[in-house]
Amino acid sequence: MNLFRLVADLMHLVSIFILLLKMQKTRSVAGRCSRISFKTQALYATVFLTRYTDLFANFQSLYNTTMKVFFIASSLYIVFLMKFKFKATNDPRLDTFKAQYVVGGAAALALIVNYAFTVQEVLWTFSIYLEAVAILPQLFMLTKTGEAEVITTHYLFALGTYRGLYLVNWIYRYWTEYYVDWIVWIAGAVQTGLYCDFFYIYFTKVLKGAKFELP
């Protein structure tokens, strides 16, 4: 564990808490569209469920296990909230990204490009590929509405930072422990790349107190 990875994981936690906070806030504003993509959240739940199949078999550390349990539980809880509790605030008309294509693509790629052709490894690889593109429905929704509430942009910023710090962590690990993991690196680079446009607008507008609006 290094500082980059630790802060990255903490940013990931922060993003989830921001999301939960936003959902609590949205509930009090009846009828308002939550502007959170259900599809992205459902994809994240799928990512965690398929990645942590080794939860009971492979013990790394208390930190590792606790985080895994938290990510699985919180992602399922968010999906539950959006699907049942706050269903009225979720507007499927804005959430139109074709998620089945990215799920299909990630599954096909995981079957072809993996480290070992075992059920667990293919599921793990699938989760890596799927995480890389899981934010697309959310970003697509943002493009469609053309604007975002400040709290939504903070959520995306926390997620983007978490991914960016993982890139730094891999460079650090490569030099300090000869750590190499091409599947994770390429998928991670793609994933971080997806946030570039968002980061640009976040830094040039939101942090200067302006509304998040697409040009």
């Binding site: 080794d54 790394q60 590792n64 985080m67 480290y115 190499v180 091409w182």
Partner: peptide, 10 residues
């Protein structure tokens, strides 16, 4: 290629 115990990241 990493060894089989490579999944130490979250």
């Amino acid at each position: 290629q990493p060894d089989q115990n490579h999944h130490d990241e979250l």
